[in-house]
Design a binder for these strands. Structure first.
Lengths: 117, 117
DNA sequence: CAGATAGTTAGCCATGCAGCTAACTATTCG
DNA sequence: CGAATAGTTAGCTGCATGGCTAACTATCTG
């Protein structure tokens, strides 16, 4: 079950890379500018960018001697969707429990059936 | 800038662990049941659970010789929020670009000001 | 053209993580 | 009590990942 979400989430599992995404959310930027706030060597940083690009979260193109990096909306939304879906299921379950609790409060004599419809 | 999101996202960067979360979204389960669908050794699987638990995405308690695992809503929501926030910024930017494009279409004579209010 | 600037490639090291087997502890059940 | 069940711990392997320096290419700019 190894799919594209693997690379999205593990790419986001690193603070440097998340910071890059956060920066790119407000607009494209060249490598140098993205690198500046991070206290790591450029080649190391470059590899973070490659991870982001390999995951599809980011694209880049070279303009002269500068490489401009920009965010890719789709994958970010896909990761968000996965989380939202899990939350919905989870909340749906809570809702059902709430409803059950409510029902039990109103009428403590009738026990719930434990079927799974 | 290493915060709790690191562990959330990297925990979710593994298909086995994401499958566990997906399963747990619809209710708590014992270790054995969670393990069953995965074709890996139990100790290996156990370590995935430990990663999830260390990240706070999951809690567990021992009942007799069985360990019941259940999802923890908060962290999942936190991860989702981070993504949502990035998307909002990104979309806000797109909106601004759209508005700009629209304005340019309506009136090509007046150039946009490039202030950043 | 020469020097500065912006990335890029190569190669090394340490740590972490996923996988395994073997052997052990703790509970439950007949 | 003794066997079965459910986890757990220990210890090993191999590969991926994050960090570095050194050396290189490609593109401006004076």
């Amino acid at each position: 079950m190894a799919n594209y979400l693997d690379s999205f989430f593990s790419a986001l599992g690193d603070p440097t890379r998340r910071a890059v995404i956060a920066r790119l959310a407000s607009g494209p930027a060249p490598v140098g500018e993205l690198h500046a706030p991070h206290d790591i060597a450029l080649p190391t940083f470059l590899r973070h960018l490659k991870v982001l690009e390999a995951s599809g979260l980011v694209r880049s193109e070279k303009v002269g001697r500068v490489r401009i990096v920009h965010i890719e909306a789709g994958p970010l939304a896909a990761a968000e969707d996965w989380l939202t879906r899990q939350r919905r299921i989870w909340e749906g379950r809570l809702d059902r429990l709430d409803a059950l609790a409510e029902r039990l409060e109103r009428d403590e004599t009738s026990p719930p059936d434990d079927k799974d419809p």
